[in-house]
Protein backbone atom coordinates (compact mmCIF):
# COMPACT_ATOMS: atom_id res chain seq x y z
CA UNK A 1 0.00 0.00 0.00
CA UNK A 2 1.59 3.26 -1.11
CA UNK A 3 1.44 6.45 0.99
CA UNK A 4 -0.62 8.45 -1.58
CA UNK A 5 -3.28 5.75 -1.65
CA UNK A 6 -3.34 5.60 2.16
CA UNK A 7 -3.79 9.38 2.43
CA UNK A 8 -6.56 9.45 -0.19
CA UNK A 9 -8.31 6.44 1.35
CA UNK A 10 -8.28 7.91 4.86
CA UNK A 11 -9.53 11.27 3.56
CA UNK A 12 -12.34 9.65 1.57
CA UNK A 13 -13.47 7.41 4.42
CA UNK A 14 -13.38 10.29 6.90
CA UNK A 15 -15.39 12.54 4.59
CA UNK A 16 -17.94 9.79 3.97
CA UNK A 17 -18.34 9.13 7.72
CA UNK A 18 -18.71 12.86 8.34
CA UNK A 19 -21.37 13.14 5.62
CA UNK A 20 -23.38 10.34 7.20
CA UNK A 21 -23.11 11.49 10.82
CA UNK A 22 -23.11 15.32 10.85
CA UNK A 23 -26.29 16.95 12.13
CA UNK A 24 -26.29 19.95 9.82
CA UNK A 25 -27.33 18.96 6.30
CA UNK A 26 -25.26 21.66 4.58
CA UNK A 27 -22.13 20.33 6.32
CA UNK A 28 -23.12 16.85 5.13
CA UNK A 29 -23.35 18.09 1.53
CA UNK A 30 -19.88 19.67 1.76
CA UNK A 31 -18.43 16.48 3.27
CA UNK A 32 -19.92 14.35 0.50
CA UNK A 33 -18.31 16.68 -2.07
CA UNK A 34 -14.93 16.01 -0.40
CA UNK A 35 -15.60 12.26 -0.54
CA UNK A 36 -16.40 12.54 -4.27
CA UNK A 37 -13.12 14.42 -4.84
CA UNK A 38 -11.24 11.68 -2.96
CA UNK A 39 -12.85 9.06 -5.21
CA UNK A 40 -11.84 11.07 -8.27
CA UNK A 41 -8.24 11.12 -6.97
CA UNK A 42 -8.40 7.32 -6.61
CA UNK A 43 -9.54 7.04 -10.24
CA UNK A 44 -6.64 9.23 -11.34
CA UNK A 45 -4.29 6.98 -9.38
CA UNK A 46 -5.71 3.98 -11.22
CA UNK A 47 -4.80 5.62 -14.54
CA UNK A 48 -8.42 6.38 -15.49
CA UNK A 49 -8.01 10.11 -16.12
CA UNK A 50 -11.19 10.61 -18.14
CA UNK A 51 -13.39 8.95 -15.52
CA UNK A 52 -11.71 10.95 -12.73
CA UNK A 53 -12.42 14.24 -14.46
CA UNK A 54 -15.97 13.13 -15.30
CA UNK A 55 -16.45 12.29 -11.63
CA UNK A 56 -15.42 15.79 -10.59
CA UNK A 57 -17.56 17.39 -13.31
CA UNK A 58 -20.73 15.39 -12.63
CA UNK A 59 -20.60 14.69 -8.90
CA UNK A 60 -18.82 17.70 -7.43
CA UNK A 61 -20.14 20.10 -10.06
CA UNK A 62 -23.72 18.94 -10.51
CA UNK A 63 -24.93 16.41 -7.93
CA UNK A 64 -23.48 18.23 -4.89
CA UNK A 65 -25.02 21.52 -6.06
CA UNK A 66 -28.34 19.75 -6.67
CA UNK A 67 -28.22 18.34 -3.12
CA UNK A 68 -27.53 21.81 -1.69
CA UNK A 69 -30.49 23.19 -3.66
CA UNK A 70 -32.74 20.43 -2.33
CA UNK A 71 -31.58 21.12 1.25
CA UNK A 72 -32.31 24.83 0.92
CA UNK A 73 -35.69 24.25 -0.79
CA UNK A 74 -36.80 21.91 2.01
CA UNK A 75 -35.55 24.18 4.81
CA UNK A 76 -33.25 21.44 6.06
CA UNK A 77 -30.44 23.91 6.70
CA UNK A 78 -31.03 24.18 10.44
CA UNK A 79 -30.01 21.20 12.55
CA UNK A 80 -32.91 19.30 14.16
CA UNK A 81 -33.34 19.25 17.93
CA UNK A 82 -34.28 15.58 18.05
CA UNK A 83 -32.04 12.66 17.13
CA UNK A 84 -31.00 12.56 13.49
CA UNK A 85 -31.13 8.77 13.45
CA UNK A 86 -34.20 6.75 12.60
CA UNK A 87 -36.28 4.85 15.14
CA UNK A 88 -35.10 1.48 13.84
CA UNK A 89 -31.43 2.44 13.54
CA UNK A 90 -30.16 -0.65 15.38
CA UNK A 91 -31.45 -2.90 12.58
CA UNK A 92 -29.74 -0.71 10.00
CA UNK A 93 -26.44 -1.02 11.84
CA UNK A 94 -26.81 -4.81 12.09
CA UNK A 95 -27.60 -5.15 8.37
CA UNK A 96 -24.64 -2.92 7.51
CA UNK A 97 -22.23 -4.95 9.65
CA UNK A 98 -23.47 -8.18 8.07
CA UNK A 99 -23.03 -6.77 4.54
CA UNK A 100 -19.55 -5.43 5.33
CA UNK A 101 -18.45 -8.73 6.89
CA UNK A 102 -19.68 -10.62 3.84
CA UNK A 103 -17.85 -8.28 1.47
CA UNK A 104 -14.57 -8.54 3.40
CA UNK A 105 -14.89 -12.32 3.59
CA UNK A 106 -15.48 -12.51 -0.17
CA UNK A 107 -12.49 -10.26 -0.90
CA UNK A 108 -10.18 -12.24 1.40
CA UNK A 109 -11.17 -15.58 -0.14
CA UNK A 110 -11.12 -14.46 -3.76
CA UNK A 111 -8.35 -15.54 -6.11
CA UNK A 112 -8.29 -12.29 -8.10
CA UNK A 113 -6.77 -10.27 -5.25
CA UNK A 114 -3.47 -12.08 -5.81
CA UNK A 115 -3.30 -10.64 -9.31
CA UNK A 116 -0.56 -8.09 -9.89
CA UNK A 117 -1.02 -5.12 -12.15
CA UNK A 118 0.65 -5.15 -15.54
CA UNK A 119 3.95 -3.28 -15.69
CA UNK A 120 2.87 -0.97 -18.48
CA UNK A 121 -0.06 1.17 -17.53
CA UNK A 122 -3.09 0.54 -19.76
CA UNK A 123 -3.88 3.22 -22.29
CA UNK A 124 -7.28 4.87 -21.96
CA UNK A 125 -7.13 8.23 -23.66
CA UNK A 126 -10.14 10.21 -24.76
CA UNK A 127 -9.73 9.21 -28.41
CA UNK A 128 -10.01 5.52 -27.60
CA UNK A 129 -13.00 6.11 -25.31
CA UNK A 130 -14.73 8.17 -27.98
CA UNK A 131 -14.11 5.53 -30.64
CA UNK A 132 -15.46 2.81 -28.34
CA UNK A 133 -18.54 4.95 -27.59
CA UNK A 134 -19.22 5.45 -31.29
CA UNK A 135 -18.67 1.83 -32.36
CA UNK A 136 -19.14 -0.94 -29.84
CA UNK A 137 -21.13 1.01 -27.22
CA UNK A 138 -23.28 3.17 -29.49
CA UNK A 139 -26.57 1.58 -28.40
CA UNK A 140 -25.96 2.13 -24.65
CA UNK A 141 -24.94 5.69 -25.47
CA UNK A 142 -28.26 6.36 -27.21
CA UNK A 143 -30.19 4.68 -24.42
CA UNK A 144 -28.44 6.76 -21.77
CA UNK A 145 -29.26 9.92 -23.72
CA UNK A 146 -32.92 8.94 -23.83
CA UNK A 147 -32.84 8.08 -20.11
CA UNK A 148 -31.32 11.44 -19.16
CA UNK A 149 -33.91 13.34 -21.23
CA UNK A 150 -36.79 11.39 -19.74
CA UNK A 151 -35.39 11.72 -16.20
CA UNK A 152 -34.94 15.48 -16.43
CA UNK A 153 -38.41 16.04 -17.93
CA UNK A 154 -39.85 13.75 -15.25
CA UNK A 155 -37.98 15.57 -12.49
CA UNK A 156 -39.39 18.91 -13.63
CA UNK A 157 -42.93 17.50 -13.80
CA UNK A 158 -42.69 15.85 -10.37
CA UNK A 159 -41.25 18.94 -8.71
CA UNK A 160 -43.85 21.37 -10.11
CA UNK A 161 -46.92 19.12 -10.13
CA UNK A 162 -48.76 19.86 -6.92
CA UNK A 163 -48.65 23.64 -7.25
CA UNK A 164 -50.02 23.68 -10.79
CA UNK A 165 -52.81 21.23 -9.95
CA UNK A 166 -53.77 23.28 -6.90
CA UNK A 167 -53.70 26.48 -8.94
CA UNK A 168 -55.94 24.89 -11.57
CA UNK A 169 -58.43 23.75 -8.92
CA UNK A 170 -58.54 27.17 -7.31
CA UNK A 171 -58.83 28.79 -10.71
CA UNK A 172 -61.79 26.60 -11.59
CA UNK A 173 -63.39 27.20 -8.18
CA UNK A 174 -63.17 30.96 -8.47
CA UNK A 175 -64.75 30.76 -11.92
CA UNK A 176 -67.51 28.52 -10.61
CA UNK A 177 -68.17 30.62 -7.54
CA UNK A 178 -69.71 33.58 -9.29
CA UNK A 179 -72.59 31.99 -11.22
CA UNK A 180 -73.25 29.25 -8.68
CA UNK A 181 -73.52 31.51 -5.67
CA UNK A 182 -75.38 34.65 -6.69
CA UNK A 183 -76.94 35.12 -3.25
CA UNK A 184 -73.65 36.44 -1.98
CA UNK A 185 -73.94 39.27 -4.46
CA UNK A 186 -77.67 39.99 -3.89
CA UNK A 187 -77.71 39.62 -0.12
CA UNK A 188 -74.57 40.64 1.68
CA UNK A 189 -74.14 38.58 4.87
CA UNK A 190 -75.58 40.42 7.84
CA UNK A 191 -73.90 40.41 11.21
CA UNK A 192 -77.04 39.05 12.91
CA UNK A 193 -77.08 35.93 10.81
CA UNK A 194 -80.71 36.35 9.73
CA UNK A 195 -80.06 34.87 6.33
CA UNK A 196 -78.97 31.56 7.79
Amino acid sequence: MTPPFAVIAVLTIAAAVAAMTLRNLVHSALAIAVAFIGLAATYLQLNAQFVGLTQILVYVGAVAILIVFAILLTRGGEAPEKSVFSLSWIWGVLVTLAVFATLVWAIKHSFVVERETSVTAPEANVQQIGQALMTRFVLPLEVIGLLLTAALVGAVIIAMKEESVKAKIEDGRSKMDEPANPSSILHPPSSRGGQR
Binding site: I67, A70, P80, V84, S86, W91
Partner: peptide, 8 residues
Amino acid sequence: LTRRNAII
Protein backbone atom coordinates in the same frame (compact mmCIF):
# COMPACT_ATOMS: atom_id res chain seq x y z
CA LEU B 1 -30.71 2.75 6.65
CA THR B 2 -30.28 4.75 9.85
CA ARG B 3 -30.75 8.45 9.07
CA ARG B 4 -34.10 10.22 9.32
CA ASN B 5 -33.70 12.82 6.61
CA ALA B 6 -34.59 11.73 3.09
CA ILE B 7 -31.82 13.85 1.54
CA ILE B 8 -29.16 12.03 3.60
